[in-house]
């Protein structure tokens, strides 16, 4: 079960993911992230502080937007990953392809860089 809250403050859109993203629930992540990317929101923060579990289905959702995000000049930064969730990104080397930082403060400064 996953809950995704989308909030918008100034030009920054935050997706807060709470719960577990697996083959059963990844569709919700896809719908929420897809909507934000299609709107062309220029700065997206992914708040993973409530994310307890992610399987390949969830990683696949993020991977499927990497090209769109680049071509639309969208900045996307992840923060708040627990060690176990972070390890899943690292196993595949996604830490090299996605911008992942530790705290919200770091995420905000990364996303606001010129």
């Amino acid at each position: 079960m996953v809950y995704i809250d989308t909030t918008k403050e100034n030009d920054i859109t935050t997706l807060k993911i709470t719960g577990e993203v697996d083959a059963s629930s990844s569709i919700q992540l896809d719908e929420s992230l897809g909507a934000v990317v299609r709107q062309g929101d220029p700065k997206i923060l992914i708040d993973c502080s409530g994310l307890n579990y992610i399987s390949s289905a969830g990683l696949g959702v993020f991977m499927s937007y990497i090209d769109d995000i680049k071509t639309s000049n969208i900045k996307m930064t992840f923060f708040g990953l627990s060690e176990k969730v972070r390890s899943v990104f690292d196993i595949l080397g996604l830490d090299q392809l996605l911008n992942i930082v530790t705290t919200k403060k770091e995420a905000l400064s990364a996303i606001n860089e010129a």
Partner: peptide
């Protein structure tokens, strides 16, 4: 390839 094809699966068995 998975990224460019925008496939939403394919990395599970890699894990």
């Amino acid at each position: 390839d998975i990224i460019h094809m925008k496939k939403k699966g394919g990395v599970g068995l890699m894990l």
